[in-house]
């Protein structure tokens, strides 16, 4: 009999991660990876963009919408409809809360990070860099009038 060496080292790695309370099966892990790769922008949220079930998820949807992320470049997953995904994605990203945003397979962060990046202009730069939106010319702002909404 040979020892299941691979398996035990895998468990060791997982248990070292801060939020790995349960072991994500390889199957669940690859399903999540597939979801993350399903579109340039992937949002794990509560509810749907049309009917968000959490204010933080709503805020992220609104910010992405504001930047004109086209629907064909964005995929959302409702974690409330899939309990396995809900717990799995937290462990996968090592991030304990929902929503979570991935851009081209890379974890971007949750609501606070996304809103912060939106306010600093980083989000637009990143979306342009990843060719998700095209560089926008300030079309609707009349000259000399800069609309600033800061709080």
């Amino acid at each position: 009999m040979f020892r299941p060496a691979l398996r035990s080292s895998y468990a060791l790695i997982r248990s070292a991660a801060p939020f790995a309370h349960r072991h994500l099966t390889n199957e669940a892990r690859s399903a999540i990876q597939k979801a993350i790769n399903s579109s340039p922008v992937v949002l794990f949220m509560k509810g749907t963009p049309q009917l968000p079930e959490c204010g933080f998820s709503r805020a992220v949807v609104q910010v992405l919408d504001l930047h004109g992320v086209p629907p064909e470049k964005m995929q959302t997953y409702n974690v409330l409809a899939d309990q396995e995904l809900r717990s799995g994605i937290k462990e996968f990203s090592e991030w304990p809360t929902i929503p979570q945003v991935y851009v081209n397979g890379e974890f971007l962060g949750g609501c606070d990070i996304l809103l912060g990046m939106h306010q600093s202009g980083e989000l637009e730069d990143l979306l342009v860099k990843h060719k998700i939106i095209s560089e926008e010319l300030p079309t609707e702002t009349p000259q000399g009038q800069t609309k600033v909404s800061e709080s």
């Binding site: 939020f19 991030w95 304990p96 962060g109 990070i113 912060g116």
Partner: peptide
């Protein structure tokens, strides 16, 4: 920012669970 948030989340993993 992400590293900062992760620091906080790790410290509060007990509370989060």
């Amino acid at each position: 920012t992400m590293q900062r948030h992760r620091m906080v989340f790790s410290a509060l993993s007990e509370e989060l669970s």
